[in-house]
Design a protein around this nucleic acid. Structure first.
Lengths: 242, 242
DNA sequence: CACCAAATGATAACTAATTTGCATTTCAAG
DNA sequence: CTTGAAATGCAAATTAGTTATCATTTGGTG
């Protein structure tokens, strides 16, 4: 099976579709209760841990390493949807929406995952109503991100979306030197490497960035942000800081 | 303010992004409790009931009529995201994700909405843990739909997506004569009317459909479905019937 | 330091979609 | 039956992206 591992080697990108770190942000008590449920399975790197269509179900918490989720089509093309790392959870779709597995999942590096059965999970959900509210918040955030992503796709050109993604990454890593290559950027934004190359070249010509081997450096963040914002047709909507 | 009301006049379309009818599917007890909270406001047709960015918050249940949600950009272009009708709820983003209003909302026809304050809503959420689990399921379904939609956008051409949408509508209305015009289809799929016209013409040339004034008729549903499926590169994933 | 794999750069041919503008058809209301 | 608004049909020019191919640069490894 041939998979493009581009995005897989690095992690924590996937911009607007960012998945909140549910487990890590849980109150201690809940986290302790979760730690007592299910059991941890260890996986080798690049191991296929689930396939779209599987009828398995569990609430899963990544305790070490990362998992790359995506969909493999008949031609063997693998589209990455998200890369989850330690502290993040998955399994909501089988458990809550009555669906089979919706994504293929492949480990990135040595990975450990705590799998909690439906029974145990539902038990905890009943016992700790707070958990369902927290999950509800987490899923709602993800839904909002996904809807914004769809609208961005319809409304803005790649030139803007790529700029926005780079700026978000910069903010997130607090570093204007971004260790991500063009192929990964292409996966992230769902376009071809050529298209990314073209836009980066254009950014560079405008003096906003420097292109390195496997990295992009935003040389004048403020000016770049201003320029990207000039595309904005919609006021961005941000969560309250609480 | 100039708005394209195409999608607005009809309702219940918006294919894969379909929002589950949370309120209608609630157990009687919960529905009764909700009915006792907040109060109902009546709106005239085409009334602007909220704007993206507003800091208002409430859990809202549409009791009569419909609301068209979308985003108006600086150029006055309005992109429809969803049209919710009686029995459907909204307001999760301000309440659960700490966001301001994310969409502009415009009533479609005489509309009544029950607005429930944050306090009252959170009270009920505490009192009835079942509610949060049901909402969690509903939001999870929506998230799944949104993610599939994003992947469809990346993977399939309009020729397929339009066919899929038409077939879904046919199934949903149990009628192969679809009262929807090309402009509405364009809004639904996020493309131009011209593009829709071209595809429909192609479908027609293949003998699958007949094009009417303000309507599309699928003349040979089985053959059309087979042909559309031939594009499929991914097994569709369906919720269990329970 | 020589080599190889990975990453980037560049180009061409192609495709799907857009925008624009206008002509034609259809339906409903007066 | 006429008229006007809405819906459809059609074509041209343009754009943003694709795939494919190959050359060049880079950086780590034996």
């Amino acid at each position: 099976m041939q998979i493009s591992y581009h995005l897989v080697k690095k992690m924590s990108y996937i911009p607007s579709l960012g998945v909140p770190s549910l487990y890590s942000s849980l109150p201690d008590l809940l986290r302790q209760k979760l730690d007592m449920l299910g059991s941890i399975t260890h996986y080798a790197p690049d191991q296929h841990i689930q396939s779209r269509g599987d009828e398995t179900e569990a609430f899963s918490i990544i305790t070490k390493g990362s998992v790359c989720f995506g969909k493999m089509d008949v031609e063997g093309k693998f589209l990455v949807s998200a890369v989850l790392k330690a502290g993040q959870c998955y399994g909501e779709f089988p458990l809550l929406a009555g669906l089979p597995r919706t994504h293929d999942g492949i480990t990135v590096g040595e990975t450990s995952i705590r799998h909690i059965s439906r029974t145990a999970f539902e038990g905890l959900l009943n016992e700790e109503p707070e958990l369902s509210v927290l999950m509800l918040k987490s899923v709602t955030e993800q839904l909002h991100n996904a809807l914004e992503w769809i609208d961005d796709l319809r409304r803005y050109p790649l030139k803007y979306r790529l700029g926005k993604a780079l700026l978000q990454m910069m903010k997130h890593h607090e570093n204007s030197y971004l260790n991500i290559n063009q192929h990964e950027l292409a996966d992230m934004l769902g376009v071809s490497r050529v298209a990314i190359g073209k836009e980066l070249k254009d950014y560079k010509a405008r003096g906003f960035i420097a292109i390195h081997y496997g990295a992009v450096e935003i040389t004048v963040p403020a000016a770049f942000a201003r320029w990207v914002d000039s595309f904005l047709q919609l006021d961005p909507v941000m969560p309250r800081q609480t």
